[in-house]
Design a protein around this nucleic acid. Sequence first.
DNA 1: AAATCATGTAAACAACTTGTAAAACCACCT
DNA 2: AGGTGGTTTTACAAGTTGTTTACATGATTT
Lengths: 229, 229
Amino acid sequence: MVKVLIVEDDDSMVTALKDGFEYEGYAVTLAKNGAQGLELATSRMPDIIILDVMLPKMSGLDVCKKLRSENINTPIIMLTARGQEIDRVLGLRLGADDYITKPFSFMELIARVEAVLRRTTRTGQEKMTDKPYQFGDVVVDFGRCEARKGRRSLELSAREFKLLKYFIEHKGEVIERDTLLNAVWDYNQALLTRTVDMHVAKLRKKLEDDPADPRYIVTVHRFGYKFVG
Amino acid sequence: MVKVLIVEDDDSMVTALKDGFEYEGYAVTLAKNGAQGLELATSRMPDIIILDVMLPKMSGLDVCKKLRSENINTPIIMLTARGQEIDRVLGLRLGADDYITKPFSFMELIARVEAVLRRTTRTGQEKMTDKPYQFGDVVVDFGRCEARKGRRSLELSAREFKLLKYFIEHKGEVIERDTLLNAVWDYNQALLTRTVDMHVAKLRKKLEDDPADPRYIVTVHRFGYKFVG
DNA sequence: AAATCATGTAAACAACTTGTAAAACCACCT
DNA sequence: AGGTGGTTTTACAAGTTGTTTACATGATTT
């Protein structure tokens, strides 16, 4: 399910957008001001952000700039009022992906949202939650948190799902333990535990035909691990 | 790849549509008149048909009527010229899924195409208020706000209805508590209460045969809940 | 081959999540 | 005001998962 974050202070606009997006099958999160928007953009990890330029206290442009400066590259569509055309260039330069001028029809907005999502997901990987991923005789459905190996259903814990998801999204790359700790755990310190190894072992025990001689999650001595789909 | 059939006689329009759809990643088939349209609609089995109302010889309305009478339910979007508003009602009654009045922006058209495709491909995603929904020995009628389990009538509160409806509309997906709080409650902050769990417990007590070992609303540890219909 | 460093893994321990009952709260009605 | 029905919060027990430790095993270097 695609998650959209709407940052907007005008109530009637909020209602219209929320209803519209929900009807279209999006999961909606609302923020009434810039600060809250920033917070939710990181905590909820939306797939796209609808950001009004005119907001109390912190403007949409500031929110956008801040997010980008923190290397959060969630696509952003800006809402501007007529006559704020100048903001367009500025907005795009600050890292917005598209903009739309009020008043607009909801259909126009949704068209842009989908265009942006298409653009950004086409280049990168597809969303892992959309459809089951398969390798060998293993099938994983992240959207449903289900996994099976052959006929047998696998019980994966939340951490195992996240770890596996990261591996799959970075298929073929050598991934350092540090990187995993940062991405899958929310540690931001240097490595000092064996936690990652631990979980890799657990995953292997469940996924591999022969956990002692792994075929999918291979270790790259002195570097880390590599997933081979 | 999604296949679109364009039935249109005006060359410049054809070119514009063809280019646009191809850019968006559709596979385009062209027909210059109604008869050819009919033929290609059956032989190429497109996923959606763009059908101009004004066509030489056989009008778009006739094409539409003919297809529906042959039980071909491929979604159809009609193109009408301004002032043909009357055709709208007629068109929709004849089985078109949407219509759009010339002149229109391509973005508007693509939005409608995608809306229609979403509507029709969403597996059995009918409006929940249309008819009672059933799972196990439970029947819920959202239109009337009534529910029963076997012979017994269930007293569900408004919130419980809304929550259950959300679950049913997202059957099979794992839903985070955050998402529920945003969708069912109108909270716009990150999660900090146990309200969701509370209500899930109440629903289970009413719906499940054994609330302690739920079969319909199952918990996915560390992620959220999942409705299994 | 020995020394050194990296990885695998079981098991004890720690931390976090969830279920649930009861209390507090709230809006509405009489 | 008091009652009513629903909703939210609190609090704690029970359940589940995650982390660390400790040692064995394996790899690489000298």
